[in-house]
Design a binder for these strands. Structure first.
Lengths: 206, 206, 206, 206
DNA sequence: AATGAATGAGGGTTCATTCAT
DNA sequence: AATGAATGAACCCTCATTCAT
């Protein structure tokens, strides 16, 4: 259930000033505009160049710049909106892994996290960011941290992971892994190996 | 002898089109300017923002823009010049490790490579780049690759490293490691641990 | 009716990639800005120096550079916009001449074409250009070519023009004539004579 | 004898401050440098782009910028030096035509003048210029004017040329002719025709 | 809500020219 | 004489952002 975001744990938070990566409700045309902008942004970001100029974005999305700014007041908000699907998928994978009895959850998290970053350029930016701009990105990263914590705990108990590995290490290493994969030729080939290396490296002892 | 670059044989080689990260000889004032630009560039790159505008650079270096362009026709050339010292140090470490009898060479390479990247922001950019812009950066990266190859061979023979690890994997993982370290709070603390993890992960078996 | 450009049929044509020398409709303030830029550009071009720097243009027109670029993405587009009035006048003259019964049409075309070039520095640039940048400049040059073709046909029939003269020769000779007039002292005096010479030279026989 | 420039009519003029398109005597290496610069400049000017940046020129000529400036203090001086050969050839043609008994001299001048302009881009610039920068360019243009005057006189007497054609008209029309030829496809084809047209147009009556 | 015109700071790059070596 | 390093004005162009319509 990847989309229960708005029914998530934090029950009745004070309405924050922080922007939403996904507004609760939207006029039909506004929703369509928003979707067009996101699609165009994903396309631009996926391009080899990879920049994300608001004017160009507006033009390729077929809307005015003002509309882009209405939906995404800062680039960070836009990035988080772009990353939302991937981040949710990662959270879902982590929560599933946390719920599983077996101790292979960490592997699932790493493989999924790497695959998603290679698919979705914005996800890396969000993983690397110190601080999310949107409240529900924060909610997701908190869920991620919590689920990864559980996964790590179980793995640690099973003797599969060193004692000194925290959820934030997983975030960082996952991000670094994607950078390692992306800075050379071939992306699929090294991915599996690098995850193997990382998993093996995270085991206790030496 | 890691630094015999300038002692190469042919005294009057055909002028190559590829720019040099470090020209062989320079008028005294030109050398001073060049050093000032490099110093200013290092400062700018080390700043939290981390951009590197040529005109700002010129101003803070106290020279005209044209002077910056004369010395560094492209940003990539500038980056490689900035990275040259660090890259040389890394090559030296790798060659020393290759010459060593003991099998701990890989560890030295990784620790040094990570430390240097954290010190010198340009080194990461050069490690990540597919293709160097300057001939002697290429020479250095080739020496690095070769030395790391020897280090890996010895380690593999000693049973310390998996079969499927190539020098290019070391380059990529080293770069990714620096990204992992840099995308969160604290840089010293995780560095040692992450190198441990990587070393352990590179060992054979699983 | 030489000016039915804007009265074309299709109300919602597919947006063409080619820039328009004159956009169909414009917000009031945009139209004013555009006119100011054109006025300033004409002034700069008419100056003895005759260059046309975009930033200077913006300043003298009292708008931002971006506004100049919005209206005129390239210098060629700007030139064509500057030349539009003159080119239209020339087309009108040629079409009138084509409609006339009498055989003196060519003379009118040459005199008008020369006079307009001397008045409007951009017209020469457009006449000299191989390929227009804007769709409606192209439309105008095509109308010009067609009308001049008719004029030539009639004149040829009347025995006033050599067989081997095509509309493109008229374009080139007209441009060359303006250069000849402009590269020396006095512009009115030689103009009439040079047109006489050209007309006489275009007559059959030898 | 195209190279008797320095032995020309003006017998003992006061030494002028104006630069010489060709210095009387030169150290051997200086002469070689000068020739290299001229060759490189001709190449640059002949390129489709056709600009003439001093720095680039110096580099392609294999000399320092300072050397270029020593030989050619202004761009105009350089242009005149580039045009010198062509201009001399034109002067020679005109003087030959002036010496001839027959009345076809004007045709030779026009054909030669057009051909030389198409060969040598700098010649057009010199023909178009109001005022030469170098004393011996001036000497040449004066010889040209004088010879063309004689040619015209003879032609006029023979009834081949209108009364109101002066040498300066020939200069301007010749320049304009080259512009007309150069602003379209094909250069050889129209050249002959356009000279015919001009010759015919210059005949008396109508 | 949406639009898109306008802005202008900002960064990029070139090149004519000077001058110390 | 020659060199070429240095200069910096001058242009180029983009793009984030605002705001009137």
């Amino acid at each position: 259930m990847p989309d229960d975001r708005s029914a998530s744990s934090a029950p009745a938070e004070a309405p924050s000033a922080a922007p939403l990566a996904r507004p609760a409700r939207l006029r039909a045309d506004a929703a369509r505009n928003r979707a067009q902008v996101l699609e165009a942004a994903a396309a631009q970001l996926a391009a080899p160049d990879g920049d994300l100029a608001m004017n160009v974005l507006a033009r390729t999305a077929g809307v005015g710049v003002g509309t882009v700014y209405r939906h995404f007041p800062t680039r960070q908000v836009l990035l988080e909106a772009l990353a939302a699907d991937g981040l949710e998928a990662l959270v879902a994978a982590a929560e599933t892994a946390a719920a599983d009895e077996c101790s292979a959850g960490l592997e699932a998290v790493l493989r999924t996290g790497l695959r998603l970053q290679l698919t979705d350029a914005a996800l890396g930016a969000v993983l690397a960011a110190q601080e999310p701009a949107c409240v529900d990105t924060r909610a997701l990263t908190e869920r991620l941290e919590s689920a990864v914590g559980q996964v790590l705990d179980r793995a640690r108990t099973a003797g599969d992971v060193r004692d000194d590995v925290a959820p934030d290490d997983v975030r960082r290493l996952l991000y670094g892994l994607a950078r390692a994969v992306s800075c050379g030729p071939g992306r699929l080939a090294p991915s599996a190996r690098y995850v193997d290396v990382l998993l093996q490296g995270l085991r206790p002892h030496g």
